[in-house]
Simulated assay, not measured.
Amino acid sequence: MPIDAVKALAAGPRTGEISWTAKDVLLYHLGIGAGTPATDPAELRYTLESRLHVLPSFATVAGAGAPGVTSALSLPGVEVDLAKVLHGGQSLTLHRPLPVEGTATLTDRITAVYDKGRAAVLVMRTEAADTDGPLWTADARIHVRGEGGWGGDRGPSARREAPAGEPDRTVELPVREDQALLYRLSGDWNPLHADPGFAERAGFERPVLHGLCTYGMTLKTVVDTLLGGDVTRVRACAARFAGVVYPGETLRIRMWRGDGETRVAVSAAERDDAPVLADTTVGHS
């Protein structure tokens, strides 16, 4: 089996240093669709360096995508075909607001390997800290098709009951045709998001949008719609990637606001509301 669960779990943590600048933050914000309309003061918080606020989901690409899916594939005990790999889910906990520019130490390791029968699921935890202390903790769930079935632990279910009642807010958000091409410049170079031939080999009709791009677009929508544009109010964000998004489609983002937590469901409007993000929560003050 290309995934050696014992070896992966026994491996010590991998540590490295990352740095980012305001330019990296601006590029990420543009990659998740910020800047429309370009002169809107609410958008300039994301696109103009003199008033820049950092959307917390930037943590998923800080240091040129270091915490990404492809990073987990270079860890001990993991040797798989990239075409079989899908990002299944992402959680992020913020310990304090992210600075516009910074240097941090990243520590990542595989914390779980689950046997889902037809697939294996790796959970990679990434922790970031700078000289002032912890910045964020992130868990990525990575599905590897065809690598299950060895009799291992199936692990917990990531599914939650759907929110009750009508959503408090619904936003329809267009995805640009070139959005994946722009987003990948923040560090996720997986050809699934740009190369039609590779996408076909992976079982898709054409390149798909990065799940973490949809994740960032969704968090920005919640911040702008329900949190008054204040990124510092975000405490956590978690989502299960339930389906793909094709560039050029429209995201339908439904939000149910609760006390300290907003539940979110995201679907592809043109494909009969096919689920895209499920079990999605944004924790906030």
Rank of each mutant, 00 (worst) to 15 (best):
G248R: 12
V231M: 03
A199Y: 14
E205I: 06
Y246K: 10
T111R: 12
Q179C: 04
G146V: 04
V144H: 07
C213T: 07
L192T: 09
Y215M: 11
G31R: 00
I110D: 05
K84S: 13
D108V: 07
V85R: 00
W150L: 12
A180V: 07
A202I: 06
G152A: 02
A72H: 03
D132K: 10
V276C: 14
V222T: 07
L227N: 04
S267K: 04
A278P: 07
D130M: 05
T15A: 14
T39R: 14
M255L: 15
W150I: 03
P275N: 06
K220C: 08
D132E: 14
Y46A: 02
V223M: 08
G149W: 11
T131I: 07
L73Q: 01
G187E: 00
L98C: 02
T218P: 03
R233C: 07
D279T: 11
A104V: 11
A8C: 10
H284K: 09
S186N: 14
V234A: 09
L48W: 12
P196G: 01
D224C: 07
Y114C: 05
V54S: 02
E249I: 01
E79Q: 10
A199L: 15
L227D: 05
A239R: 10
D279F: 13
V100N: 10
A138R: 12
V245S: 15
V54M: 01
T39V: 15
G203Q: 11
D230C: 05
E79Y: 05
G117Y: 01
W20K: 10
G77C: 06
P41I: 13
I142T: 02
T93K: 15
V61E: 00
R145C: 06
R184Q: 02
V113L: 05
P275M: 13
A64I: 11
L73D: 00
L173E: 08
T21K: 06
R240Q: 12
T107L: 01
A104G: 04
T131S: 14
G260W: 10
L26D: 03
S50F: 13
P134M: 02
P37Q: 06
M255I: 09
G151Y: 08
L27I: 04
R176F: 12
A269S: 09
E270C: 04
V222A: 10
L192F: 11
V234T: 13
F198A: 06
G63R: 01
A236L: 03
T214M: 03
T126P: 00
P13E: 02
K84F: 07
G12V: 01
S91L: 05
K23D: 12
T225V: 04
T107N: 03
H143G: 03
E166Y: 14
V85L: 00
D224I: 01
E127F: 02
T60W: 06
R206E: 12
F198I: 12
V123P: 11
G229S: 08
T111Q: 08
K220Y: 07
R240D: 14
K7Y: 04
W150N: 04
H87F: 09
K84P: 04
D273Q: 10
T39L: 15
R154S: 14
V282L: 05
L9V: 13
G151F: 10
R141K: 14
T21S: 15
C213I: 09
D272Y: 05
G148T: 08
D273S: 09
P275C: 13
A236K: 09
P247C: 01
L181Q: 15
I18W: 01
G89I: 11
G77R: 06
S50R: 15
